[in-house]
Amino acid sequence: MQPHSPVDPQDQPHVPGPSLWPVGFAVGVVVLLVGLIVSWWIAGLGALVALAFAFLWVRDLTVGTPLTHTPEVPPESPTGPALPATDGPAAMPLSLSDERFPRSKFLELSTLGLGGVIGGIVTAPALGFMIAPAFLKQGQKDHDLGPLSDFPEGRYVVATYMADAAQGEVSRRTAYVRFNGQQNGQPSFSVISNHCAHLGCPVQPNGPLDEQNKKQHGDVTLIPTISIAGFGCPCHGGQYDTEGNRTSGPPVRALDRYSFSIRNGRLFIGKPFSVSHVDGAGASAQIHKWKLSFPGEPVSGLESWLYPIQPPH
């Protein structure tokens, strides 16, 4: 038994012959549906009836009554050979193919053009919606870390805070803050980011924390360190000194830092920036400051040419 080949030239549409069995089939289905509500064995009975009649119906179809007549297909031109298009009363102008802008060409181009325009109108906002928000309004707001008295001189304090309360815990950031004493009558701070300059893991202070003196206000937690020998990264072993200079491992530059400001005797953490290296230490340190870059990108030297443009941070 072969399935009917659709390319068989002898093929006729398989119009089913007349049959009464569908009536029984329909009755069976109704009984089945009623049975679903009323009781299971009525449903079963309905199913049996429907199946039996379905079988009879399909058998009827396969036996099929051969079509007794083929529908007449009217011949293409009933009055003898067709006239050439340039002859007779409905003649087309001779120069059809010489037209410089034939209508079919116009329709083709306008279909493509319109399709392109519609596609563009739909796609452009969607793509923009996907891409633009990642680059817009990225600015960091200054964040209050607490009164200056919370920061003992010469010791790093582990400060964590929520950069955006609306986003919740995802936006929690950590900075290491050290009060360097007065510099020209102004309080001086080192505010170091915990983002490793290799690939962004959280660097840890190399030394014990003073958990007893932990302070908490709002979303800010401050834990002083006791005395640390720099910072280390748990991911690939990058090491930094207390100024954030790389001392060993894969990082390509020093740790990023944050700007800061002091208002009403409170310390505010500001915008982050990248640092190639730091000369000196403490209040008199000279920080070589660069535009904020992603971890792993050198900010000075030849390799920094590979990253000429930074997206707006």
């Binding site: 928000p133 680059f135 936006s171 992603f294 792993g296 990108e297 990253y307 930074q310």
Partner: peptide, 21 residues
């Protein structure tokens, strides 16, 4: 992000901002 030239943009596109958010 360390891919030359376009890297920073790819990284920022992936995380949908300057930081994971």
């Amino acid at each position: 992000g360390t891919a030359p030239f376009l890297g920073p943009f790819i990284a920022q596109f992936l995380q949908g901002g300057t930081y994971i958010n």
